[in-house]
Design a protein around this nucleic acid. Sequence first.
DNA 1: ACCAGGATAATTGTATCCAATTCAAGCGCT
DNA 2: AGCGCTTGAATTGGATACAATTATCCTGGT
Lengths: 222, 222
Amino acid sequence: MDLSPDRAQQEQGQSAQSQAYSYLLAQIRLGQLEGGTHVVADRVASTLGISRMPVREAIRQLASEGFMTLRSNRGAVVTALGANEIVELYEMRAVLEGLAMRLATTRIDRQGLDEADIALSRLDRARVNVDRFITAHDQFHDVFLEYCPRPRLVGEIRRIRRATEPYLRMTLKVSSTAVQNTTAEHLELLSAIRSGDPETAERAMREHVLRTNVEELVPGGV
Amino acid sequence: MDLSPDRAQQEQGQSAQSQAYSYLLAQIRLGQLEGGTHVVADRVASTLGISRMPVREAIRQLASEGFMTLRSNRGAVVTALGANEIVELYEMRAVLEGLAMRLATTRIDRQGLDEADIALSRLDRARVNVDRFITAHDQFHDVFLEYCPRPRLVGEIRRIRRATEPYLRMTLKVSSTAVQNTTAEHLELLSAIRSGDPETAERAMREHVLRTNVEELVPGGV
DNA sequence: ACCAGGATAATTGTATCCAATTCAAGCGCT
DNA sequence: AGCGCTTGAATTGGATACAATTATCCTGGT
């Protein structure tokens, strides 16, 4: 089966495991692999030109991160999130990113505030395109996370963000009402962190995350 | 190497993977595997009478849950948490369990409150012994989590609890001052949830987690 | 004695092989 | 024709085999 000694993936120098991991995660994030899809390890392996083992390990890692679901002896499926579960993830992100915001408020400096301004204007210009919007939006939020000295907290926030990304993408493609208020919404965050008060900043972030995500899913409220 | 066809682990009917996972996690939780220990997959495999593969997958899962750290081509070590990282985990648990408490407050019923009373008296009696104290303490907190309809949130809280358990165990063995105020501390939680006000209950839980854990690690405050 | 370098051992990463389980037809039976 | 059983293919779980990398130790030179 392995005909070419110098295979493509080795140009990257990456291990077969991380290659499989990145590939599957990218497919899931982009929505190419929809929720509920049965992922066959052997299929992925031959697609990437590697063996089944590193794929299995990648799948297991993705499963433990919530992106896939393992059924004993019956393979792995891409985790399909229902509205309830998406709300749950946003609720968790709201309190976690609120905490991160609180910690960042007392640490952000002039340069960070400037970066945030720039990121916001980029976000404003990116509203026309879904992919660019998501990228710019992540970058804006990342500015604050840079000033939060809690690596695990930041990692967890980013993980939740990735898990909900395909659904956000779907929502934005259908109704772009969410994009309308974006600039005003994020200006509020900026003024909150400029106030220098951790409590205010935390509350602002918590409400921001819930308002701009959960409200659309559950119009009535939780 | 495999001399006996019907090996011990198969009496449990468990898969080799979950067996390795449970074994390693138990060792870590009990502190038998200290932070920084280099875990050799082959060693674990022969100890359990299985092959190296399922052990590897278990290690990878534990790594993605934060219990171990993978170094490329150089194996896995048990994650050694410094004071900073323990504080970080408690901060995260504080906001997450605060959220869980808020959601539980409007849902808990008479029976749940009774269970909490019983769990508290058990906790009070268990103060003499470290292992029983930890078990009873977890059970008390679990009563509230039972009424929180957010499975991922609950899972994450429990995961953080497990990750910090060996360090809590160490602390309790050295200085048992933390155990002194326990009953009063948890009575406060009970009265907060009895108030029926989600905001009050959330704040109570957040402050409880920080007060009873972080303050000892960082006497000055964060 | 100490360091550099290389041989050797230990360990990890990957591939292939085998067994066990699940899923899908095809078959016969009533 | 409908139903259960059996057989076979597909797939997963696990073990072994091999390659690549890292760690250890030994030796020789300074």
